[in-house]
Design a protein around this nucleic acid. Sequence first.
DNA 1: AACGCGCCCTGTCCGC
DNA 2: TGCGGACAGGGCGCGT
Length: 271
Amino acid sequence: MPELPEVETIVRDLARLLPGRRIRRVEVLRPDLIEGESAAEFGAGLEGQMVGEVTRRAKNIVIALEDERLVVNLGMTGRLLMAGAGEVDEKHTGVRFTLDDGRQLVYHDVRRFGRLTRYSDEAWRAWEARLGVEPLGGEFTSQWLHEQAARSRVAIKTWLMDQRHVVGVGNIYASEALFRAKLDPRRAANTLTAPEARRLHDAVRAVLRDAIEFRGTTLLDYRDASGERGGFAERLKVYGRQGEPCPVCGTPIERIVQGGRSTFFCPRCQK
DNA sequence: AACGCGCCCTGTCCGC
DNA sequence: TGCGGACAGGGCGCGT
């Protein structure tokens, strides 16, 4: 569910609420969500620790602790909620953190594709190094995009979603960015010209920034830390809109499958 | 090495 | 009303 804008929205909210708080108690109700250690070790390792900065790397929520990090990946249906914020179906509560002020932070996940992992600083650096560049950061330039895409023959939509290249772009925003850039999602990555790479670069940043401004896209499951839905779904131009007229030219939007995932595009506007 | 595919899991919706 | 199949925002591991 959550791509960069959704994770960024949650992180910004939690960054105002968590730093300085101490974790008093950890209850793991779904041990399969914990990566790399037992639920008991996970809980014991976290209890008593003070929370530092809350940041985002790719689609991960990174919660700094005293000498390590708690990294939360939401998978498809994960939510990280301040308890009391909206009803939560207790059946799918995976982990409950009780803080020293009595408030609770709840990890909730219907499909349980999400993962919670404790990392030492060194382990985190090593893991994080395998991720690609941040699309809203300075390393992501149109020239970089052109050069890197030139090394791959996969479809540009599939290339965009590969987190080893650029992080944070998932199935929704890949379709949306390619529509804004007027590029056919089936084009091989290495066929992009420099002007096309620039259009795609600008489109990726624009769509992510717009989506952050509207607090992300809720199709079904996504909620922010307060349990609220994002506001960007109605502003999607092509995602989920097969058969509807292209907002630019009126041609019906098409749906195809690439790498097992749905892609939506305008067959007339996107070349 | 790069690439495509199946799988992890639960829920919902659609056609028969 | 029930049932099977397709599909859903992610990411990993496998085989080729």
